[in-house]
């Protein structure tokens, strides 16, 4: 008998309180986004599509040392080196296979030349499997570019991965 009264109390008193909670939300601003039209700004550290940086004069920073390929847990990076006219080493072929890449960011962490970064872009669907293999041309930032955010990125990245004062 006691159980029944308790249940009745729940239905008559407690459940309308629950209805009130859902009713309240009628007057709240929706938290959802109208996605393809409106986009959420990604965090500065977001690990999206890779890009390769250049020096200010337009030469590539990447020296094809292969450390990113060594760090890659998914073995998604392939590269072949060549020599420039000046006798410097650079990448002839630099490919990232998106179908293997897991966007862990180990390449960015490993790069000793601060050449590869994971950017903000996250929409890269395609209709052909071959389009998922990004070549160097796909990833290099355009030169000359209008703005020069590289110094800003560099400051951020160095802070993120630790300054000498922070680790001693």
């Amino acid at each position: 008998m006691k159980e029944i009264f308790k249940a009745l109390g729940n239905v008559v008193i407690k459940m309308p309180q629950g209805f009130y909670v859902t009713f309240k939300h009628l007057f709240k601003k929706p938290v959802t986004l109208d996605y393809p039209r409106k986009k959420k700004p990604m965090a500065p550290r977001y690990r999206g599509k890779h890009y390769l940086e250049r020096y200010d004069d337009g030469t590539e920073r990447c020296v094809c040392c292969g450390l990113c390929a060594a760090a890659c847990p998914a073995d998604a990076i392939y590269m072949e080196p060549e020599e420039t006219e000046k006798g410097e080493r650079k990448a002839r072929v630099y490919e990232i296979n998106l179908l293997r890449c897991i966007f862990c960011g180990f390449c960015e962490e490993a790069c000793p030349e601060e050449a590869i970064f994971l950017g903000q872009e996250y929409e890269f669907s395609a209709d052909d499997r071959n389009k998922f293999i990004w070549t160097k041309e796909d990833m290099l930032v355009p030169h000359p570019r209008k703005d020069n955010p590289f110094k800003k990125i560099l400051r951020r990245v160095r802070k993120v991965y630790g300054t000498p004062e922070a680790t001693r």
């Binding site: 000793p112 160095r158 991965y161 630790g162 300054t163 000498p164 922070a166 680790t167």
Partner: peptide
């Protein structure tokens, strides 16, 4: 304090030092 232990050869050194 630091966000990584200082263990040479096991834990990665800070990026600034690497450069």
């Amino acid at each position: 304090g630091p966000f990584r232990a200082h263990v040479p050869g096991v834990v990665l050194p800070p990026k600034e030092d690497v450069l």
